[in-house]
Nucleic acid binder design. Sequence first.
DNA 1: CATTGGAACCAATTAAAAATTGGTCCAGAA
DNA 2: TTCTGGACCAATTTTTAATTGGTTCCAATG
Lengths: 259, 259
Amino acid sequence: MVQGKTGEAHDNSNYALDRLRELLGAGELGSEGRLPTERALAEMLGISRRVVRRALEVLEAEGLIWRRQGSGTFVGERPDRFSEHLGDIVAGTDFMELMEVRLRIEPQLAQLAAMRARPRDVEKMRELARKIIESSDADARELWDGALHRLIAQSAGNRLFLSIFDVINRVRQDEAWRAVRERARSGKNAFEVSYAQHKNIIEAIAARDPARAGEAMREHMLTLQERLIRATSMEHDHTIPNADTEDDPEGFRAQNATA
Amino acid sequence: MVQGKTGEAHDNSNYALDRLRELLGAGELGSEGRLPTERALAEMLGISRRVVRRALEVLEAEGLIWRRQGSGTFVGERPDRFSEHLGDIVAGTDFMELMEVRLRIEPQLAQLAAMRARPRDVEKMRELARKIIESSDADARELWDGALHRLIAQSAGNRLFLSIFDVINRVRQDEAWRAVRERARSGKNAFEVSYAQHKNIIEAIAARDPARAGEAMREHMLTLQERLIRATSMEHDHTIPNADTEDDPEGFRAQNATA
DNA sequence: CATTGGAACCAATTAAAAATTGGTCCAGAA
DNA sequence: TTCTGGACCAATTTTTAATTGGTTCCAATG
């Protein structure tokens, strides 16, 4: 068998580690992806599986990879335990229901994000906001927008809350509403307004001002809701006043302002 | 082929319906379970599948059964699309994370409930609150308490929101925290305080005052949280003072975010 | 003596194939 | 007209096979 650099048996261990680090570092796997099987790696590197295994153990301990029996070895972070199970929980929700939930939950997440987001998170948010306006394609914009909202949710630093956000997100992204979304984003000035609101949210988070962040997100959600309602036109109208008549808006605001 | 009572072809329809109702009514299936396949039923009753089918359609329309292509025909209510998948999503969440989520979501549900709860819902709430104090067993109290909170969530009239509540509820009920819950409810005056707060919430909902309902629920959650923190004792202590400042009431979670 | 190679086997997972089951349609009989 | 029998489709479940990481053992190597 071909040995590594030296041919000395007890050096194969380091040789394997180096070669594997090359594979990962080279980014040939795009920082996410699946490594070849242990058996394949052993043959590729001309060493035994046992040695490959030990090298992988090191890399796993370092958090560079994660393994799953029967499945394979993967690069990057281990996926979230919750969101995996939510894959098929998608449809079956009324559109107004969804918006109502978003309107009440995302501001909460923005508040938490304002309390806990790290500088690097904020920097990422700014970057995403920039990418949204730089994209010429509407689909791309929607993609970046989704990423921004999720990053805010993630910055809230609460895994359970993030899982809940992911549930909502799945419902939101449902294919059935694709047409509605498209009509909604074609609204007049939708572009600029949306950008300004994103900026408000991000700056409030950067300033560590939970109340302002929550309120900014709430406004964002409200205009989004209005836009979507206009897009659907429909007879849903009667449900909207309830969500925002004199009965409540104070309540919500007061709740969150003091919160 | 053997015909039903009569032998007249056009009477098989009713015959099939009667026989099927017998099957369901007899409770041989325990009000939950799977019916024989359509083909088997057809043979059993000595009629064609088409007729069985039409009878089943009637029963389905009546809500007595539900069917799923490729799977079978079932007795009872169609299982909830969301909660089925949440069975094993339970554990893996930090306790403070859970309380943070409850603190921010249940008040929202209370607000919505205040806007939409029907009189009969309110009546049920009062009844549940009464049952809580009437129970001598602590476990029973916890059960009724859970029922009350869920009823409020249900009265919010938003299925998606209710599903989210159920996710949280599953996590909350996790066996791992049984000990913590027990210690928490043994606190001094926990009994009376809890009852007074429940009353506040329910009356606010009855008065259709979302702001007050939300605030009452928030207070309830806060004291519950405090009680739980005290129950875990731990080093969480220094986080409590934060929980009541004007700027950053929920700052308690700051140290867990990094973990 | 420690390390490596090679092999076999186990357990979890995935992928593919087969069987089951409700959904639909149609020509003919009662 | 209604019912029958059959065929076929599509979704689902069950079964089976193949893949893959996890583990153990032992001879060969240095």
